[in-house]
Amino acid sequence: MSTHIIAQSLLSGILVGALYGIAALGLSLVFGVLKVLNIAHGELIMLGGYASFWAFNKAEVDPYVSLVIVVPLLFLVGTILHFGLFAHIVRANEEQRIKNSLLIGFGLTLIGQTLAIRYFEADERRIATEYSTDAWEFIGLRLPLVRASGLVIGIVLVILLQLFMHRTYIGKAIRATAEDWQTASLSGINVRLTYLITFALGSALAGLAGMLVSVQYSISPNIGLTWTLKALIVVVLAGLGSMPGTFLAGVLLGLAETSSALAFGSQYREMVGLVLFVIILSIRSQGLFGEQNA
């Protein structure tokens, strides 16, 4: 095995991992703040992907430009979902809340997937722009343009989110609510509104991830579970509460996948992530909220 192949697959691991990281950001945010696990997160990614796809296909809107529609659209979808469903379960205690959110997310998955098959058709789709196959070459390594864009967008996104969470009042309110919603409301923070904004923001992030999926890979109505699982693995790897940590864990997962594909063959690529996940999960059996109070 030449060093060239190793370097190339590590590079593609980093690139795919950046996308995993972006996909996980919204899930981690919502899970960390609302203590609600939205397993329909993958369906939101799918929806964002389709929104970009149709914008490109029907109106020839460049996928990156389509973000100005897709992100607000998913923000709106998140608002509606929270308002109609998740807002009703956040009053329960943590354990009950997570369990109910899992169940509701599961119901949403069923509905979303079926509707997608019906209205978007079951075919795999991808956005094929003029620059889709473009790539940079340097020291013999190939860097596909659209995949590199994911890494750049991911890094910019993490910096923006970090600024938002630490420099703005809403961001601080979100962090305060994540730690202790009761004390937050005693500080005059409107906890319900904070929950709503957080959930909608998480959905908007899923929309952005969806656009990248439809440009870099392909979308179909049943990709939801796959992406939810990827995002979950990343969240478990990273723990809750840190945006840069989540993104890095995504990159790590991408690297783990490609290097195991290199070592054991590509059919084990998907399994490595899942096995890693179960191992880390059982090490951290006290749960993901534990380390926050440390």
């Binding site: 696990l37 354990e95 997570i98 369990k99 899992l102 579970l225 699982l229 979950l232 693995i233 478990v236 059919q267 998907e270 399994m271 899942l274 096995v275 996940f277 179960v278 999960l281 059982s282 059996s285 749960g287 993901l288």
Partner: peptide, 28 residues
């Protein structure tokens, strides 16, 4: 033995992941 050390949600997503891993293995 390992999975039941997880509780609640962690058991749920852990079993989901294991089943997916097994499904992919059987598939190949």
């Amino acid at each position: 033995a390992p999975a039941l050390r997880l509780k609640g949600i962690y058991f749920a997503i852990g079993t989901l992941a294991l089943a997916e891993a097994l499904r992919l293995t059987i598939g190949s």
